[in-house]
């Protein structure tokens, strides 16, 4: 599997490493994917890197690669963001993978080996949901709202109604809310706020977890929040050019 830029892998690692320390990557002809629960079992994260994300991709037999994020991060830090990355896994020797970084400008090549782990992965079945509300907005805006409100209080409430979408946080000494309305005057789709819902709803989530989820803003200019009463929220970042996505399911807080 050969990626044109290592930056994609670096950003994926940054987006999951606070939640997941080790995880199985499932490789098949469609691409590489992973699903993992954080240790607290509050967030489920799913990553899909489709074949389209790669400059070249070949997977003759489906394989599972058990990856420890810490050494993987150390290896990835050795790659420049613009360098190509080739990941090689041998079906005859499933003890490790090889990573090769190529810097075409400097004619430099570096090679690393990463030992694989035997991880008892837990796969969760995510039912197809009919969402009660969907909001899409610039991922940078969502990140700023969450980062700011997480300073105010540890509970983040998201309410969707005719007024728009309201994000509220309440702390011991202060309370704050921000309201977004669907944008009408913005031309660029990536800068638009779109809101759809069937019934008004209001749900509360842990702000520190939501903060971790906004790290994936580096992977996509837009984010989609899907909500339904008494269900985990789905926060989805679609990568450009059908390259794949990262999805987080965060369980709500309830009285």
């Amino acid at each position: 599997a050969r990626l044109p830029r290592s930056a994609v892998l670096k950003k994926i690692l940054d987006s999951v490493k606070d939640l997941v320390k080790e995880t199985n990557w499932d490789c098949n002809e469609e691409g590489m994917s992973m699903q993992a629960l954080d240790t607290g079992r509050i967030v489920l994260v799913e990553v899909m890197l489709r074949e389209a994300a790669f400059e070249s991709y070949a997977c003759e037999v489906p394989m599972t690669l058990g990856i420890d994020m810490e050494p993987f991060g150390k290896v990835l830090r050795c790659a420049g963001g613009d360098e190509k990355v080739t990941i090689k896994a041998s079906r005859n020797d499933q003890d490790h993978i090889e990573l090769v970084f190529e810097n075409e400008e400097k004619e430099r090549m570096s090679a690393f080996e990463l030992k694989l782990m035997d991880i008892d992965g837990e796969h969760m079945a995510v039912p197809d949901a009919e969402w009660g509300a969907e909001i899409s907005m610039p991922s940078s805006e969502f990140k700023k709202i969450v980062m700011d409100l997480a300073e105010i209080g540890s509970d983040l409430t998201i309410a969707v109604s005719k007024l728009g979408v309201t994000f509220t946080a309440q702390g011991n000494n202060c309370k704050g809310s921000m309201v977004l309305q669907p944008s009408t005057a913005v031309d660029k789709k990536s800068e638009q706020v779109a809101i759809s819902f069937t019934e008004p709803l209001e749900m509360t989530f842990a702000a520190p977890y939501m903060k971790m989820i906004t790290k994936a803003a580096a992977l996509s200019s837009t984010v989609t929040l899907s909500l339904d009463e008494a269900c985990p929220i789905c926060v989805r970042y679609e990568m450009e050019d059908n390259a794949g996505h990262i999805k987080y399911y965060l369980a709500p807080k309830e009285d």
């Binding site: 509050i42 489920l44 079945a125």
Partner: peptide, 14 residues
């Protein structure tokens, strides 16, 4: 204070 639910209360193991 609201109590934190777990993902496993909503999704089942495959």
């Amino acid at each position: 204070m609201a109590s934190q639910k777990r993902i496993t209360a909503f999704f089942k193991r495959k």
